[in-house]
Write a protein that binds this DNA or RNA. Structure first.
Lengths: 197, 197
DNA sequence: TTCAACCTAACGACCGGTCGGTAGTTCCCA
DNA sequence: TGGGAACTACCGACCGGTCGTTAGGTTGAA
């Protein structure tokens, strides 16, 4: 195994195990076995088990934010921007299913400082969608809703996909993204029976 | 502590700890400490740590199914039925936040046999919503969508609420339920830009 | 000769679970 | 009415095993 790759190998083995068994249920020995080295050697590449988890969470969040930002940067029409954002959100989550699943279930494994860093990144990410909802509402394209709640709804619909999506399954990532896109845009445009007071 | 209550005490302490720290990160000793007894005494009430988790998951699922079924049983109009189902789903998840959070994150802690039992119950529950979507589509009230995907979308929107809902927060359970209700019904009624092939 | 990249061996802490035991209560039957 | 068996609800001590982590040694390429 080439030297520069071992750090990556450990990371991808950890991603696989953390997503399948969970962070606490996965031992350093297992990660080492999967990587073809002794468990003590893990500590040459990562400071601790928590450091390994944090690395996974951090790079996933950074990549996600960059990915979605890029997908909407040169579009002005707000409905299209939202469609693009939803689509790229879905794509990212289904293509990097395991990492995203970890990001949404293993937050409790990291230290308070690291936790704050990840939460800050997540807030930054959510703001992309919240701004789009606000933009659309101000333009009269979407009907004003509770922006926070609706943004959570949008994100969790797609994020949850990472929990059940099966790449051998009936539907392609594209197809799923389209269904979500339609559902969300209709939800955003629909009038409410219970208007905000 | 009255004798009959200790089993319940242990259970509710476990619910609190499992939801806050996770199943694997919680030790029997901690549960015992929280319950005011020695850890050996836990084993008088529950066979094992896994048995305790399974008990929590099972009763939560049973209660959930019964609760939602009851809420729609004497209503015939399909939109109203869906609205009721969504509303009771949200209510149940936010009122019994911790248990539901565990139900959606600690499935990996149980044995294969128990896992199958819980998954069967969850399938049964999802079928309630899938039948409603089908009903509504056949009646022409909803536009036909991919029933499975859309049912997952509906359920996860609300379920995710259990992860972030704060009973000290800005919004009441009722208010959140209404927002979701509107969003979902609009999503179900909207026409699709990407029709199923 | 240096140094990155690994190794073996061991550490203390803690894990879930079991053991024998023991107050206190209930119940049966002579 | 009384005595003992059985049962409930708990305890303290302990088990083998695994955990994350560290100290220190080895290897091979540059």
């Amino acid at each position: 195994m080439a030297p520069q790759n071992m750090k990556q190998t450990i990371k991808s083995v950890a991603i696989d195990l953390f997503s399948r068994k969970g962070y606490f249920a996965t031992s350093i020995s297992e990660i080492a076995r999967g990587s073809g080295i002794q468990k003590a050697s893990i500590y040459y590449h990562y400071e601790s088990k928590e450091d390994l988890l944090f690395h996974i969470l951090k790079t996933t969040m950074d990549d996600l934010i960059a990915y979605v930002r890029r997908s909407i940067q040169d579009v002005t029409d707000v409905e299209t921007r939202m469609r693009r954002a939803v689509r790229s959100h879905v794509h990212f989550h289904l293509e990097r299913q395991k990492e995203n699943f970890i990001s949404n279930s293993e937050l409790r494994g990291i230290t308070p400082e690291h936790y704050q860093m990840i939460v800050d990144k997540r807030d930054e990410y959510e703001r992309i969608f919240q701004d789009l909802i606000r933009e659309g509402a101000e333009a009269g394209v979407f009907l004003t809703k509770d922006i926070k709640i609706v943004s959570y709804a949008i994100l969790t619909i797609c994020t949850a996909g990472a929990a059940w999506y099966n790449d051998q399954g009936r539907l392609s990532i594209d197809r799923i993204a389209m269904i979500y896109e339609d559902f969300i845009i209709d939800g955003l445009k629909g009038k409410h029976r219970f208007p905000p007071e």
